[in-house]
Amino acid sequence: MDLVLNAGLVVKLVLLILVYFSVVSWAIIIYKFLIVQRAMRQSEAFLDFFWSKKRFDVIGQGLKEYSHSPLAVLFRDVYQELMQSRRAIEGQEEEHMLADLGEQDRVARVLRRAMTSETHRLEKYLTFLATTGSAAPFIGLFGTVWGIMNAFHGIGQTGSASLAVVAPGISEALVATALGLVAAIPAVIGYNHFLNKVNVLIGDMDNFSQEILNIVQRMSRSH
C-alpha cells in the first residue's frame, strides 16, 4: 500500500487507469459469463423444444421460457414476419402457415437481420477486453519506465547509488507493470474464452437459420 501512496503523480495516474481497466474488465467478464452461459443453456433447450413440436404457433407460445436464447429470437422474428404476411392475405387457414415465394426472401432477410442483431449483442463489450489485454501491459510499462527515470534522477541528485536510494524508486515503478499484467491476463483469457463461445453460438444460429428457411420453403411448396 505504501508503494502506491509514495509513488509519483504520473505513476499514480497510470495505476488509476489500470485499476479502471481491471474493474471494467472483470465487470465485462461477469456480464459475458452470465449472458453466454444462459444463451448456450437455453439454446440447447430451445432446439429440443423446437424439434419436439411440429407447429410454429405452438412453438411461438412457449418462447418466453427461452428468452435468453439467440435461436429463440431468430424464431420469434420469423414467426412475427409470417404472422404479419398471414394477416395480409385474407382467407388463409389459421393452423397452417402458408408462404408464397416472395415470403421466403422476406424470411431470409428477417433471419439475417436477427442474426446480425444477436451477434452484436453477444459480442458486445468484447472489444474492451481485447483492448485491455493488449494495452494494459504497455500502460504499466510506461509507468515503470517513468518511475525508474525518476529514481535515477533522484540518484543523480543525492549522488549516492546505495541500495537504500535505488531500491524504493524501482520497487514503486514495478508496481505499475505488475498491475498492468494483473489487468491484462484475465482480460486476454476472458476474451479468448468468450469469443470461442460466441463463435459456437453464431454457428448454431447459422445452422438454425438454414433449417428455418428449409421449413419455410417446404411450406410454400406444399401450398
Binding site: 485499476v19 481491471s22 474493474v23 471494467v24 472483470w26 465487470a27 465485462i28 461477469i30 456480464y31 452470465l34 449472458i35 428468452s67 435468453h68 429470437v73 420469434r76 449483442r121 463489450y125
Partner: peptide, 19 residues
C-alpha cells in the same frame, strides 16, 4: 425487452467491490 440482459453498471459496481 425479450432478453432482459443484466445491467453492466451494476456489474461494474460488483467488480469494484470485489477489487
Amino acid at each position: 425487452q425479450f432478453h432482459s440482459d443484466p445491467k453492466i453498471g451494476r456489474l461494474i459496481l460488483v467488480s469494484l467491490v470485489l477489487h
